[in-house]
């Protein structure tokens, strides 16, 4: 057992403690419904962008909450703001505003969000 070890390759793990969660905080302060997502994926299922390219709003939201901002910064611009996800969301998350705020936060170059 002692040979199993506990080390994780740095590139593999989410370093939650040191990751920058400021983008998620920025969104959550201005759009509190960002907090109530239950990861059901209904938004992604209905998403036109997601059907043609690698784009999952559910995934992007959770990545922001974990501070994995770099994997979101470019991708989030793919959204066409059609708002179908907002219609489908069973929790009433204002998904459209979440995207707009995320873009805004990235533009404001919060901390590490270069």
């Amino acid at each position: 057992m002692e040979k199993f070890g506990f080390s994780i390759l740095k590139a593999r793990h989410i370093n939650y403690d040191s990751n920058d969660k400021s983008i998620a905080e920025y969104i959550s302060e201005r759009e509190p419904s960002f907090r109530i997502c239950i990861e059901c994926g209904c938004c992604t299922a209905t998403c036109t962008t997601g059907n043609f390219t690698r784009f999952s709003l559910r995934e992007l939201q959770i990545l922001l909450k974990r501070g994995e901002n770099e994997s979101v910064r470019e991708v989030i611009n793919k959204c066409m703001l059609c708002g179908k996800c907002t219609l489908a969301c069973p929790r009433g998350v204002n998904t459209r505003n979440v995207i707009l705020l995320a873009r805004e936060a990235f533009q404001k170059r919060l901390k590490n969000a270069v």
Binding site: C40, G41, C42, C43, T44, A45, T46, R58, A88, P90
Partner: peptide, 29 residues
Amino acid sequence: IRGKLSEVSENIENKLVVKVEDTLAGRPL
């Protein structure tokens, strides 16, 4: 399969087509 259905439609063969995100695979299904 972990994903909430967004909508159902019917195709020409009279089969039902469901669309979800397979949230654990991270892709639309």
